[in-house]
C-alpha cells in the first residue's frame, strides 16, 4: 500500500508567493525569498509532494509561471503537481514539460468536462488532480470556482456522487472557510465523499501546526494531508513536523540519507 503523504502547496500570483486566508491573498515573497526561507532542494526531502498553483488574480502569465516552476523544481527530486486556470491540453502539456508530474484542474471540471477526458486520453487519469474549493453555506457545501469568485450550481455531495464518471486520479478537497485560518481541517468535508470512492483524497485548508496534520492523517478517508501555510513552516518547520509525525508512528515514508 502507498504510505500517506504530506504535501506542501505553494500559491503563486504574478511572480510572488502568497499566503491565502479565505482566498484573500497576501504577498509574502518572490522566488528568492522562497529559496532563502525554504530552499526546495532541501525541503524536498521533508515532504512527499509539492503542489504549485498559479492563483493569479490578474490575467495569468503562463510562460512566467512555467519558468518559475522550472526554477523551483530544478534540484527538487520530489513529486510535483501544478495547476491554476488550466483550460487546454497545451497548458497542461507545458506544465508537464516544466517539472510537473501531475496537473491540477479546478474550474474546468465544471466548465469544460470535455477537457478532462482529453487530458486523461493524453496523459492518463493518474495525471489529473481534481481540485475542489468548498464553502459551507445554507447547511451544505457549495463549490466555488475561478479562485473562489463564482459559486456553481451543484453542491459538493452531488458533485462527488458523480465524480467516478470523470477520469481524474485524485481529489484535492479544500475548505475555503478554513483556508489560512490555522484552525485545523474541516473533517465534515469528508462526510460528503461517497463510500465507494476509488481515487485517493487529499485534504487541505486550515492547517496551523503539525497537530492538525496528525489529525488529518488519523482519518482513514484521507490519503494525503496538505498545507499551504507559507509562514508556519519556514526554515526547518516542515522537517520538524515530518519527524514528529514519524515519531508518533504515522505511516509516512522515511527518506534515507546517502
Amino acid at each position: 500500500m502507498a504510505k500517506k503523504r504530506l504535501i506542501f502547496t505553494l500559491l503563486y500570483d504574478n511572480g510572488s508567493f502568497m499566503l491565502s486566508r479565505n482566498f484573500r491573498l497576501q504577498k509574502i515573497g518572490d522566488l528568492k525569498w522562497l529559496e532563502t526561507n525554504y530552499g526546495f532542494s532541501e525541503v524536498g526531502y521533508s515532504i512527499d509532494e509539492l503542489i504549485v498553483l498559479d492563483v493569479s488574480r490578474t490575467p495569468r502569465d503562463r510562460q512566467a509561471f512555467c519558468e518559475t516552476l522550472k526554477a523551483l523544481t530544478f534540484d527538487c527530486f520530489a513529486p510535483i503537481a501544478a495547476g491554476g486556470g488550466v483550460n487546454s491540453v497545451k497548458e497542461a502539456h507545458d506544465l508537464l514539460r516544466s517539472g510537473a508530474d501531475k496537473v491540477v484542474v479546478n474550474t474546468a471540471l465544471h466548465t469544460n468536462p470535455d477537457l478532462i477526458s482529453k487530458l486523461a486520453t493524453e496523459f492518463g487519469r493518474q495525471c489529473i488532480v481534481a481540485s475542489l474549493d468548498c464553502k459551507y453555506s445554507d447547511n451544505t457545501y457549495q463549490l466555488v470556482t475561478n479562485n473562489g469568485s463564482e459559486t456553481i450550481d451543484l453542491e459538493l455531495p452531488q458533485f462527488l456522487a458523480e465524480i467516478s464518471s470523470l477520469p481524474v486520479g485524485e481529489i484535492y478537497l479544500n475548505s475555503v472557510d478554513r483556508d489560512g485560518t490555522g484552525n485545523g481541517y474541516d473533517f465534515k468535508l469528508l462526510d460528503c465523499l461517497p463510500k465507494s470512492i476509488e481515487v485517493p483524497v487529499i485534504l487541505a485548508g486550515g492547517v496551523g501546526n503539525s497537530k492538525h496534520l496528525a489529525e488529518g492523517l488519523s482519518d482513514h478517508r484521507v490519503d494525503a494531508v496538505a498545507t499551504a501555510n507559507l509562514l508556519n513552516f519556514m526554515g526547518n518547520g516542515l522537517a520538524l513536523a515530518r519527524a514528529e509525525l514519524i515519531n508518533t508512528n504515522f505511516d509516512l515514508p522515511v527518506f534515507i540519507e546517502y
Binding site: 502507498a2 503523504r5 486520479g169 485524485e170 476509488e198 490519503d223
Partner: peptide, 9 residues
C-alpha cells in the same frame, strides 16, 4: 485499494 496507486511505497 485506492486506484491509481499514488505515493511512496
Amino acid at each position: 485499494i485506492k486506484i491509481p496507486h499514488i505515493g511512496f511505497s
